[in-house]
Amino acid sequence: MAQGFNMELRCQQQWGWLIATWLFLSGSGSGLFLLYELFNLPSAFAPLSLGTIVLGGAVLLWELGNPLRAWRGVSRLGTSWLSRGTLSVWLFVICSSLFIAPQFASSLPWGQGHAIVKTLEWIAGLCALMITLYPGFSLAKNRSIPFWNTALYPVISFSFALMGASGLALAASFWLSGELRGIASLALVVIVVNLLLMAFHMLVMHRAGGASKESVRLLNRGPLAWTFWIGVVLVGMIVPLLVLALSQLVSVAGTGLLVGTFLFRYCVLKAGVYVPPALAEKTMDLSKLKRPNAELRQEYAGIAANYARGSW
């Protein structure tokens, strides 16, 4: 039994596929709403954004140990990023639903250009921005896992949310009509930025040593290497980069971006390695265990002699 308690570098085992799916869906959905606002995307993309976030919320509920108590999740806005994020999601769902509703029911008292619609649009947009950022803050607050505990994570979270959103928009363009001006160019920029951010983060973490270095090893040569290098870097970033630069197959590139974003979220979670418990030998006074070299040599000679006589 005690062997299982050995002091060693351990990955977190709590968050896996489901949390990665939630982060992917909520990040991509909220990013898509931002793109919808900034790039004047066709109106069908607003409901797609809302649906993606709602689906992400459903996945999170599935992951919770006690989903029926999820309403309590907004009780600690002062300290918990998860609380703040949950509130943002609720506000986004309410405001964006009301904002989108006139598309489907023109008889509603508020319509396009109405002051209420503008207000709802602004609130929904700010909440969407918050939803792209808060997973990064939430992970970065964990001092126990140094690979996440960096000010860069909110930036990475936002940047990958934009990558997922670009992917969602490009992939959905296969089914949804309308022009996607600027999205392909944005995707190209975001891919390059994300490659640089990842490389910088991994380099810094590798140099930091300890648990951070182990996280990088897991991604580079450990059990996550295939998922990371083939899934995230090749399929998720390099292939879409080449497709967007060299051809017009935007939906293919979009699908690749979605795969890359999802697997990146998964890899980040699974590469979370705890700072190991204080290694006792660095702090214990082991001088009593260390005997003079002559004594050790004498004892070792005795053991060797016993071996030679076969008297063990």
Partner: peptide, 22 residues
């Protein structure tokens, strides 16, 4: 009676001293 089982505290504990039975 208040815990929703989100695992945030389990992750945050540097001593890995929190558990959620399934």
């Amino acid at each position: 009676d208040r815990c929703i089982g989100c695992h945030s505290c389990v992750i945050a504990c540097p001593y890995q001293a929190r558990f959620i039975p399934d």
